[in-house]
Amino acid sequence: MIKTILARIQQKHRTIAFPKGEPALPDRFRGRPVVDTKKCANDCRECENVCPTDAIHCSAGSLKLDLGRCIFCGQCQQACKKGAIQFTNEYRMAARSREDLIISDAEIKLADALGTRIRRVLGRSLKLRQVSAGGCNACEADTNVLTTIVFDLGRFGIQFVASPRHADGLLITGPVTENMKLALKKTCEAIPDPKVVIAVGSCAIAGGPYINHPEVNNGADRILPVDLYIPGCPPHPLTILDGLLRLLGKFNSK
């Protein structure tokens, strides 16, 4: 017992100050990209050509990047000699609609909160059922870490539960393989209304690296209505946490 107590003292208090304090991210972290159309040479299309998931579209005077398709490999930034696409250290990028993820010069419209009526039910206690539908286990792993002492998800009233019957919502990872389609639908049906559906990672949003494979369904919103999209490959745990807290209206002022 004494050994356990001494170890506990040695390990210290490790829960991060987020959301009160700003988290420290590595300087090489590839967070939300910003697009500057003015810098774009327009007809070179280098960024479009190197993008593995066709997330970029150039046409006369416009350059659009789909954060839902983006797997944050950074190839476009390297290819663009003019610096029209730059990955920033910004981890916040969850959105409520698929269209909001397609960014250009304008600032991204981050997710707003659920309606007041549903928030009255779920706002202080959100129980989620997670389903991996073809994910590579990276999104799953970085969702799972939210339950460790570092992020301590429980302090926000959010918890992952074992049964869909106990859940208020579904958090989906993976491109929804043909082989998981039925199980995903059944799990969602088993969750009592009102419920929220959250798509985490580029696979669950648009198919990720597997986009247009016959074995996958290019994301969850082909199967179910999605309330929150959290981009990334995989999203940083803070990106996921930020998205969840926005949905619950914890950042009203921002």
């Binding site: 190197v50 993008c51 593995p52 998931t53 797997i71 490999c73 190839q75 991996s132 539908a133 073809g134 994910g135 993976g174 491109p175 393989t177 043909e178 082989n179 998981m180 199980a183 690296p209 597997y210 494979h213 016959p214 074995e215 996958v216």
Partner: peptide, 22 residues
């Protein structure tokens, strides 16, 4: 088999810009 997403078939004809991501 629930996670089957067709990687090996998609690798044929590569390497291409998606190969490393697979």
């Amino acid at each position: 088999g629930y996670q089957h997403r067709g990687i090996e078939v998609a690798l044929i004809g590569g390497p291409n810009k998606r190969t490393i991501h697979y």
